[in-house]
Design a binder for these strands. Structure first.
Lengths: 249, 249
DNA sequence: TAATATAATTACCGGTGAGTATCATGCGGC
DNA sequence: GCCGCATGATACTCACCGGTAATTATATTA
């Protein structure tokens, strides 16, 4: 139906539409109907994203058709379009969900006043957990090539934020003496991110090591772990503090 | 043409075919020679693979049609089928070509009697060079998901060979005292491979650091570089020999 | 129960892209 | 000149897939 308002080619986020509506029509009109954000809907949308992430992980983005995805969910393809605007958006959400897990760890670390080494360890653990999660594949393997310009740029920004966060922690660690590395933070961050991202390729559920253990191993490997002797002399034994402090984990 | 011998569904390597033929028909028959291994043909085939690798790197495997590829080569699609059996084979060759560069480095290292640390350094340099080459993308980003079972298994085997080679070198280094790492070889190899593979994502031609320099940096980072106190003697006199070969950037 | 919004379905469209059947040309050897 | 072969182009098929229109089912509310 060509006359239906708002159904044009432009990609309209449902939320934006809703916001515009409620802002325009004010609140006393009976039509301003608070747009009962039925929780149900978001749950289903999340199920679409999660199922898609798993399917993409197994068969790849391009080898997973929307019919496949719909079948996995026990519905038909058009139903999917009630929750997402197109396939690209699904990939984008997978991307974002995974990256957000890491960014959450980063913010958590920023809010802490533990030594930088411990904050970095936290982020690395979160990173490893995210990579080995259902959304890990999308972060590592899916490529910006499959995203539109805007979405690709958005993902790139998120990735950059994570990269910068790692570098900042490394610099902070050098500053407060809790980290001693032999190479510059930039290269170190690249190497660390690479090692972590690669987990997405080899780490399988049921691996002998938990993702936390791998994260710990990488910290040691990069010379910023508790087992490094170089650390011992530089700053005292308080390195365990944040490790066992009330963090949920 | 269903009648043409050897043109069935099975993927036959041209070289194997040629070898089998010449072995069977001996060398005096006038029909034995027609295998005029016209060098021209292999050159063209290589061009197909290389051009494909570059296109895949930029736009991705699934976003590059054979028509695109043909256009890049200034021919039409059916022409491509004179040199490869299908698109999958192109991807496989890209994979293999890249991996072979690393395997060559591995064999080179095995043939050397230098300390394991230097042999590892050589492999890491070769690895970094391969990843930043035109075929780097295929090794890292392209996934086995797009390959048939047999080809996927073949690639997996090659990858495993490389992984085992890295572990072997690490163990050898621990054995001869030229490498001192704080974690087990398996995890170290994963981290090292990950850091190197990730170069395919961030390294661009014209980067401030050459791939050799990055490789050197990683060696340092992983505690097996020349800056490590465990290595006091600059015993590496020959490690520069192979360094300058191969890179064009 | 009527009105309405949402949810999901059936049936389709348009485009694309891998792979093929068939014909045309150039070339070396007889 | 003719045959065989390699190489290439034109024009096509065939299936799949993303996305949509029209329609039915379900639930909520007045």
């Amino acid at each position: 139906m060509p006359g239906k308002p708002g159904s044009g080619k432009s990609v309209r986020r449902k939320s934006e539409l809703g916001a515009a509506r409620s802002a325009a029509v004010a609140s006393e009109s009976p039509w301003a109907r608070p747009r009962r954000r039925s929780r149900e809907r978001e749950i289903k949308r999340d199920a679409v994203i999660l199922t898609a992430a798993r399917a993409f992980q197994r068969r790849g983005y391009h080898n997973t058709s929307l019919d496949d995805l719909a079948a996995l969910l026990g519905v038909t393809k058009p139903t999917l379009y009630h929750y997402v605007t197109n396939k690209e958006e699904i990939l984008f959400e997978c991307f974002r969900t995974g990256l957000d897990q890491i960014r959450a760890g980063l913010r958590e670390a920023d809010a802490s006043d533990a030594p930088a080494r411990d904050r970095l360890a936290l982020v690395v653990r979160r990173y490893a957990a995210a990579i080995t999660s259902d959304f890990g594949w999308c972060m590592v393997r899916a490529e910006d090539q499959d995203l539109s310009h805007e979405m690709g740029a958005a993902i790139k920004a998120l990735k950059s934020e994570i990269d910068q966060g790692l570098r900042r922690l490394l610099r902070a660690g050098i500053g407060d003496g809790s980290i001693a590395i032999a190479t510059e933070p930039k290269l170190t961050a690249f190497a660390l991110a690479g090692a972590l991202n690669w987990m997405g390729h080899w780490y399988r559920a049921g691996e002998a090591l938990s993702s936390d253990e791998v994260a710990e191993g990488f910290m040691v490997l990069f010379g910023v772990g508790p087992a490094t002797k170089a650390q011992r002399g530089r700053y005292n034994g308080r390195s365990k503090t944040a490790q066992s402090s009330g963090r949920k984990e």
